[in-house]
Design a protein around this nucleic acid. Structure first.
Lengths: 182, 182, 182, 182
DNA sequence: TATGAATGAGACTTCATTCAT
DNA sequence: AATGAATGAAGTCTCATTCAT
């Protein structure tokens, strides 16, 4: 899986044939099929693995009893810091989302409110009902919150900008002002 | 080109082999090569075509002499409206940006400040130097501005939300508050 | 035909598609088919044309009434000089001989003793029956005579050697000694 | 490789598509690419293989300590006998030399005096410096020596003549007289 | 008579997957 | 359980030839 992660992140799906993944992992090509039914399954399993790791990272130090604002900023900055610290993970997720798997998965999840993203949904619902954030559809809040973050992470990953910690806090604050209900 | 647009937008690059594009266009497979040197060239040419169309759409009704805020909101909403009106175009651009072409092009452009995105860059530079928007690196402002918009457009395209005009204005305003220098 | 000659000589058959030939000739692709039934026919016709030209060149100044040796050396040097003066023609003939056409044509001709090479055959038969040259099968004499010449012409054409007139005469003489009946 | 040898020898490069070679070899089309990077590499590797085999054949029974004449005739007749015994090899080499690969290789080798043909070059240089053969450029001697042999081999291969051993010796002797310094 | 856009068979090559070892 | 050689469908692209204009 880590061989697949490296190859796909760095070169994209179509430059990561199973044979190369096997080579990089130091195993035979057939061996992969003992653990994964198909390339698709490998890709999906790897995706879930990363997702879990990310959720764990976010929950670490989560200020359960602080204000909504604090909790929101914690999540937002944790996520961005995670992506900056793990650029391969970020690039993999991007590749995944921009593929047939990703699109259908995204739709399924959001419509059924399942999956790990439900944490975010819950948070936003609390924010709306407590009039702490603007009264907008959850999905819009979601887009407004994570759109900038993904873009920042991408620019950083591509080395177009070198995000300092100060930038991250600035961005989180700026973004908070966008959704805050004043 | 419109056959390519449809297939690639709806199914992704790797489900759009030249033979299917040709079929959909109602021509022989070889015919495409009379007009495009290679599949790559077809993809790039189509990209530029769409980009031009978008720039035209944005410039229509541009309030040249209005305040910075008005101009900014004009561009932001025009772009989002364009994507909502042309979901295939939007999805095509997304596919393109998430591919080897897109990544290298993006880097080249931003670093060399050429290409159509220079319009945005100019606008932001004006905003920063006139202290109308926060003093952040241009790329961050860019990410903060277009990140949410792309996410909104994506959600709309995937029918996860049906953006009304009211939503668009709300989002533009919310976003303005995020970058505004108060 | 001269467009075909140039392209095929310089780049080989497989880099001389009909479309390029037409372009170089300044006509439409279809126009060629008004004058030649197919690419094969074009190639064959061009071959015959060159062959005729060569036979004409050889016969010019042919010392009809001189000794066998004089006549032989005349033919041999004329031919080599022709190839040196017309490298494109030489390269075309080489390409042709090394192709399905060439091989079958060669066999047909020699077996049926038709075609222009019958001139050479007649000459050699005279030489053998008059005991001027060694008593070897005609085909062997042919090979012994034209093998070196073709090699010399090839080396000259490829710029591996720059044949001076002195060389040509030396070679002709040397070769004469090989077949001469002493 | 032997499937490629047969097809290319008998039908030429362009009637030997990879699919036919694979069929003839009784393997799948992709299998060839496990052993050869490309069709070009297959062709080149096969060429080198044959060349090695030929050099081995020539060196067998080489009369190291005999006179120049003996050594020269040994090489010449060995080569011709090899070609007669292995007509497919001969035809393959011919095809190869008459192709983009062959032409550039030939030029490289002769100019840099590398490759197996250097054996011949050394021999001729000895002959010239010891005044045993005529004082002509090496390339000319080369052409004078191997031109007839190639032609004879070709005629035999095409079944235009059935070379007996006596013929071979006659031809070698005749040729020796052409280059001998008298 | 001339054109040249259109065709589609066929070329080379890649790669997810299988299976005998 | 592990291997990796073999497979062959599918992909991109070329080009001799046709035919409506």
């Amino acid at each position: 899986m880590s061989a697949a992660l490296e190859l796909i992140s760095e070169q994209g799906f179509h430059k990561a044939p199973m044979s190369r993944i096997a080579d990089k992992a130091g195993v035979g090509a057939g061996t992969i099929y003992l653990y994964f039914e198909s390339k698709d399954m490998l890709i999906k399993t790897l995706y879930r693995e990363l997702e879990n790791e990310i959720m764990t990272a976010i929950q670490k130090g989560y200020p359960e009893s602080e204000s909504f604002r604090e909790r929101f900023i914690h999540i937002w900055t944790s996520l961005l810091r995670y992506f900056i610290a793990n650029p391969l993970h970020f690039r993999y997720l991007e590749q995944y989302h921009n593929s047939p798997y990703g699109v259908s998965m995204r739709r399924d999840r959001i419509l059924s409110k399942t999956g790990d993203s439900s944490i975010f949904i819950d948070l936003f619902e609390e924010g709306v009902s407590s009039h702490t954030v603007k009264d907008l559809p959850i999905i819009m809040l979601f887009a407004l919150a994570f759109g900038p973050m993904v873009f920042l992470a991408r620019d950083h990953t591509l080395a177009l900008i070198k995000l300092q910690d100060a930038h991250i806090v600035q961005a989180a604050t700026a973004y908070w002002e966008a959704i805050e209900n004043k």
